[in-house]
Write a protein that binds this DNA or RNA. Structure first.
Lengths: 346, 346
DNA sequence: CTGAAAGCGCTAACAG
DNA sequence: CTGTTAGCGCTTTCAG
C-alpha cells in the first residue's frame, strides 16, 4: 500500500532523485536518452507521483471546491457534471460539498475547503444573502458564484439573464394568443426572482396586458410548493389562460394540481416553466420552458475562476449567459390553432 | 492570499510552533492556560491549518474518491449526497469524478485519484467488467464497489438484493391478479440484470405462470430505450396485463409509448419500475416501483470503506441491502377492484 | 546535463 | 509541560 517514491526509482536508475523529478516534469534540462530510460523505468516499477507532496512545494493543489445546496437537485447535478469534466480537462479535480440549504453549513464547508487549500471555489449559493454570511471568507480564495445574480456585490459571478428569460417566455405566451397570464411562484428576498418577475411584468406592460403575480412563501421552488400554490389558485375561479412558473419544479406541481382539478394541460391551460431541468423533457412531463445553458454556465464559471487563480483577472467580474426558449408540449395557441406539439405525454 | 503558518502564530504567542500544533490537535501534553491562549490567538489572527502539510506527514489525506458514470443520473446523485454528508461527518471529503460511461476514462480517473493519494475509493462501476479493466488498481487502495454485484470477484461491494427485489415486484403484480406479466429490458452481460431476471423467473415459476422476457440491446437502461422497446412490443398484439421493467427509466419510456398507442396506465396496463429514482415520485409519473435504499447503500459503503482504510477489515467483504416495495399509481388490480392509488397523475 | 541541498507546513519522537 | 529536531515526497536553486 505504501507506494514508491522518487528516491526508489532514482536508486534503481542509478541517478539522483532530482533527475527523476526532471524527467517526469518534462524539464528541458535533461538528456533525452536519460529521460526515456527513466520514464520507462517509472512505468515498469509502477511509480505514481505523489501529488500532495507536489502541492506542498508548489503551493497550489489543483483542486477546486464546489459548494452547492444538494447535488441531487437536477439543475445542480447537471451543472456539476460539466464543471467536473471541464475542470479535469484543465488539470483540476473537484471537491464537492453539500451545504444542505443551510447557511451555517455553507460557511462551515467553505472553511473546510479553505483548510484543504483548494485553489478556488465555485459556489451555488443558498441565497443572495450567502454573500453576507460568507463575509471575510470569499476574499481568502478566488471564488465565483454561479446561478445567483450577485449584482452590486463585491463578488465574481456567472448567471443566466433572468429578466431576458422571462421576457422570452412572456412573449412566447403572448404570441400564442394568451392575454391573461399568471406568474406563479415569485419569492421575496431573492434577486433572481425579482429579476424574473421584472422580465414578466415589463413584457406584460409592453403588450398592454396586466401582470398577475402569485407569490410564494415556501422556502424552495419545489414541486410540492407548486402544487400547494396551484391548488389554492384553482380553488377560486379565474379566467387566465396560461401560467408561467418561476421554475420547472413549480410547474410540475401545477400539473399535478391541474390534473386533480380536471384541468387539462395544454388544452384548458397553457403552462411554462423555467430552467429546463432534465426531467422537463421526460415524455409524461414534456414541459415548455426556458433553457439555462448548463454547460456554458459551467465553463464560463470555470474559466473565470481560473483567470482569477492565475491572477490574469483582478477586481470582480461577472457574466450573464443567454436563456433560450424550448418549446415542448405544455402550451397551446389560444386562437384554436394547434401548436406544433401535442401536450404533456405527446 | 498566502496564509499564516504555525510559525507565524508561534512567534506572536512567544512559544515554539510545536506547542501551537499541540494546542490545535488537542494533545493532552499541554497546559490548559496556554492552550486557551493559543487557541484564542489563532482565532484572532485568522489562522487556518494547512491540511496538505498535515497529510504529508500523517500519510493520509482524509479524502475519498468517488467515481461514477455521470453525476446527473438521479440514482447516482442521490447516492452522492448521502455519501458526501456521511463522509464529512466522519471527517472525510469527497473528490468526485465522472467516468462518462467510458471504461478507459474510468481507469484514468482511478489513477488520478491514486496520485491524489485518496485514502479510499468508492466506485459505481460502468459495468461488471470494470473489475477486469481496473485490474491492479483496486489493490493499491481500499476500494468498494457500489450498486453492482461483484460476486465471485476479489472486491468489496455493496449492492441491493436484486433478486429479492424482483421477487417482491413479481409477487406484488401476481397478488393484484396479473397472470401474464412481461419483463422488459433484460440486458446481457450484466450480472445485476441476470439477478433481477432470476428473481422474476423464479417467482413466475413459483406461481405457475410463464415468464416472458424482452431483452434489451441498448447500452443503457434509459427512457429512450424503454420507449423503443415498448413501441416494438406494442406493435404486435399481446394479452399481457402488466409490464415489469428492469428500471424506472425504462418504465418512463414505456409510459410514453403506451400513451402514443392510446393504452392507459394503469387502467389498461399495469407498469412497474425498479430503483425508485427521485422522479418516479413526480406526480405526472407516479410510478410503482422497488426502492433501493440509497442512504443505506451510501452509509454501508462508506462504513465498509473506512473499515478497510483503518485496517479493521481485511480480505473482501460485501453486503446486500434490502429492497422494498413502493406502491404508487401505476398498477391496478386485475379483478376489477380498484387499487388504493389512482394512476399516473393521481 | 546532473547532483546536492534547502525547504514547503506540519507532526512526532526525544530531550529537557 | 514545552522546545528542538527530524523528516513526509517533491521542486528548485545552486554548484559542478
Amino acid at each position: 500500500m505504501s507506494s514508491l517514491t522518487l528516491k526508489d526509482v532514482a536508486k534503481v536508475a542509478g541517478v539522483s532523485y532530482a533527475t527523476v523529478s526532471r524527467a517526469l516534469s518534462g524539464s528541458p534540462e535533461i538528456g533525452e536518452k536519460t529521460r526515456q530510460r527513466i520514464l520507462k523505468l517509472c512505468d515498469e516499477m509502477g511509480y505514481t507521483p505523489n501529488s500532495v507532496a507536489r502541492s506542498m512545494v508548489m503551493k497550489h493543489t489543483n483542486i477546486i471546491g464546489l459548494i452547492l445546496a444538494s447535488i441531487d437537485n437536477p439543475f445542480m447535478s447537471e451543472l456539476t457534471v460539466h464543471l467536473e469534466i471541464y475542470a479535469r480537462e484543465l488539470g483540476y479535480n473537484l471537491m464537492v460539498c453539500n451545504s444542505s440549504y443551510n447557511q451555517k453549513l455553507e460557511r462551515d464547508v467553505f472553511r473546510l475547503l479553505l483548510s484543504r487549500k483548494v485553489d478556488g471555489i465555485i459556489i451555488l449559493p443558498i441565497s443572495h444573502s450567502s454573500d453576507e454570511s460568507l463575509q471575510s471568507l470569499t476574499s481568502q480564495v478566488p471564488t465565483v458564484f454561479v446561478s445567483e445574480n450577485m449584482q452590486d456585490l463585491p463578488e465574481n459571478y456567472i448567471s443566466i439573464d433572468n429578466t431576458r428569460g422571462m421576457k422570452i417566455a412572456t412573449d412566447y405566451l403572448y404570441s400564442l394568443g394568451h392575454r391573461k397570464i399568471v406568474y406563479l411562484g415569485a419569492r421575496k428576498n431573492s434577486v433572481t426572482h425579482a429579476l424574473r418577475v421584472e422580465g414578466y411584468t415589463s413584457t406584460c406592460k409592453k403588450h398592454g396586458i396586466e401582470p398577475i403575480i402569485i407569490e410564494s412563501n415556501y422556502p424552495r421552488s419545489s414541486h410540492e410548493a407548486g402544487y400547494l400554490l396551484a391548488r389554492e389558485y384553482f380553488s377560486k375561479s379565474h379566467d387566465e389562460t396560461a401560467i408561467l412558473c418561476a421554475s420547472d419544479s413549480l410547474a410540475i406541481g401545477v400539473m399535478h394540481a391541474a390534473y386533480e382539478k380536471g384541468i387539462r394541460i395544454p388544452e384548458d391551460l397553457s403552462l411554462m416553466g423555467f430552467d429546463n431541468i432534465s426531467f422537463a423533457s421526460l415524455p409524461p412531463i414534456n414541459l415548455t420552458t426556458i433553457n439555462q445553458p448548463k454547460q456554458e454556465l459551467a465553463t464560463s464559471a470555470m474559466d473565470l475562476l481560473i483567470q482569477h487563480i492565475n491572477g490574469t483577472e483582478s477586481g470582480y467580474s461577472s457574466k450573464l449567459v443567454s436563456p433560450s426558449l424550448v418549446i415542448r408540449g405544455s402550451c397551446l395557441a389560444r386562437n384554436k390553432e394547434i401548436n406544433a406539439n401535442g401536450g404533456p405525454h405527446a
